[in-house]
């Protein structure tokens, strides 16, 4: 495929570190880029960056991930239905606050599950009708098992992981591919100040490369660093009676 024929890539939640790295990686491969975020004007410097580095077309699109009623209009308003859509929408919050305040908990549920699931619902239907496309959802290893330290965020991500799995199943024969990306720890604004083991912590550029490869090779579920597959397999295998007494 020559550069001019490459399909557009839509980045949902385009202001995050992972989203920025992902947009760069796709732009470097010649894809036109659609950046979608709240207050999207703040991304004009990122648009200039992508256009300067890669000489591709970049468009900015206002998006409120929590306003599910607007999602159909949002997708219809894109300059073209993207070839690939990546959801980097997510909010971690503080587990202590999340677990004690129903409003905060609900906000985490909605931002990590409801919003991205609703957007993918609209995109999936449009891609199914077209008969092609790739949906890439960034979920989390926190969704692999609920733990005391992050189960509000983790349960929302578990919902999103299950949603992506179902969507993949539904669209497998319709020409639309669905990828679940599980980054593990990533050195981003979200985790700044946390004391993370460097061997378990990926850089945003590493996640971006994993996303690109997964889309290209039509992988289903991707752990960015392989060690997380092992860690989560162990964590999932601990019997509940023992697990409930641990503090992992």
């Amino acid at each position: 495929m020559s550069g001019a024929e490459k399909g557009a890539v839509l980045i949902l939640g385009a202001a995050s570190d992972i989203a920025r790295a992902t947009a760069r990686a796709y732009a470097a491969h010649g894809h036109p880029i659609q950046l979608a975020a709240r207050n999207v004007d703040r991304l004009s410097a990122d648009k200039a960056d992508l256009e300067t580095r890669s000489a591709v077309t970049v468009t900015l699109h206002e998006l409120d991930a929590l306003d599910t009623a607007s999602h159909k209009g949002f997708v219809d308003g894109l300059p073209e239905l993207p070839h690939i859509a990546v959801s980097a929408i997510g909010v971690l919050g503080d587990q202590g606050d999340n677990a004690s305040d129903p409003d905060k908990a609900t906000a985490i549920f909605r931002a990590n599950f409801e919003g991205p699931a609703s957007l993918f619902l609209v995109l999936a239907n449009a891609m199914e009708a077209r008969g092609s496309g790739t949906l890439i959802g960034i979920s989390s290893v926190a969704g692999d098992r609920g733990r005391a330290s992050n189960y509000i965020y983790g349960s929302a991500k578990a919902g999103f992981t299950a949603y992506l799995s179902g969507l993949r199943n539904r669209l497998a024969k319709k020409g639309v591919h669905v990828v679940t990306v599980l980054p593990g720890f990533v050195a981003t604004a979200m985790t700044e100040g946390m004391d993370l083991n460097p061997r378990l912590t990926a850089q945003p550029e590493e996640v971006a490369q994993a996303i690109l490869n997964a889309g290209e090779k039509r992988r289903d579920v991707v752990y960015v660093r392989g060690i997380w597959r092992l860690i989560m397999a162990v964590i999932r295998s601990i019997p509940e009676g023992i697990f409930k007494k641990t503090s992992i």
Partner: peptide, 9 residues
């Protein structure tokens, strides 16, 4: 390293 945007060329 977080301020790594190219502005114009």
């Amino acid at each position: 390293r977080g301020t790594d945007r190219m502005i114009s060329f």
